[in-house]
Amino acid sequence: MLSVKNLQVQVEGKEILHGIDLQIKPGEVHAIMGPNGSGKSTFSNVLMGHSKYKVTNGEIEFRGQNLLELEPEERARLGMFLAFQYPKEIPGVSLVSFLRAAYNAVRKDKDPISLYHFKKLLEEKMELIGLSSTFMSRSLNEGFSGGEKKKVEILQMAMLEPRLAILDETDSGLDIDALKTICETVQAIRSPKQSILLITHYPRILDYITPDKVHVLMNGKIVMEDGERLARKLEEQGYDYVREKMGIKSLGLKIVN
């Protein structure tokens, strides 16, 4: 479904990713883990098509298409979704009107949904994720708490039903109850063919969503890959485990658990 080969990326002339390879099949859950500054967010934004990041080498293919030729909206319509680490506030645009526009946009080939049916569907999903329906008419993300913003990201994922959902540090800033609810929702809304790419610093989220594969990203390279047990190791020993094993010098970045 997603195939990344030798991906090299620059931001403002500085290379951040030095050749990433990643293959995700339909229905798989992958986790990319790494300390701060390892290039995790760069990677997720490159996948979604942020214009700030310049791909200097390598390829990304998604569902048989060359992603690098597509605009962010075209990627979304092809079935990609990014749950943002810092979702943007859009004053004056209600959650319901935004999400209905997005819903219709990713279903361009189908007839637009009526407001009535859309609201019903939205209400169902909001209940599932534990968001009061009063959020519907509030301005998108404006004045929402950190946890509410994250819930709204997952709500969008639930409504848009992407083929591949990238969750960029969805766990950061969440208390354990909120994290649990969000992860349970992700599990509940998942179709068997939907793939998930978890981008995270902490192994904690992997207690709730079990990955098929864990990749450790350090200094812009994937330095270690394994199954779920790699996450366990990281939980016990932190990123120093990887550094020691791979002979990577610590850059003075500490893991805070």
Binding site: M48, G49, H50, S51, E71, P72, E73, R75, A76, R77, F81, L82, F84, P87, K88, I90, P91, G92, V93, F98, A101, A102, A105, V106, S139, L140, Q156, L160
Partner: peptide, 23 residues
């Protein structure tokens, strides 16, 4: 970028932000 990542074209995203501004 945020709005476009949800499938809205650049024009649609701009219009949405403007509509929000005058709401």
């Amino acid at each position: 970028y945020y709005l476009r990542s949800r499938g809205l074209s650049e024009d649609e995203a701009l219009a949405m932000i403007v509509n929000g501004f005058i709401e």
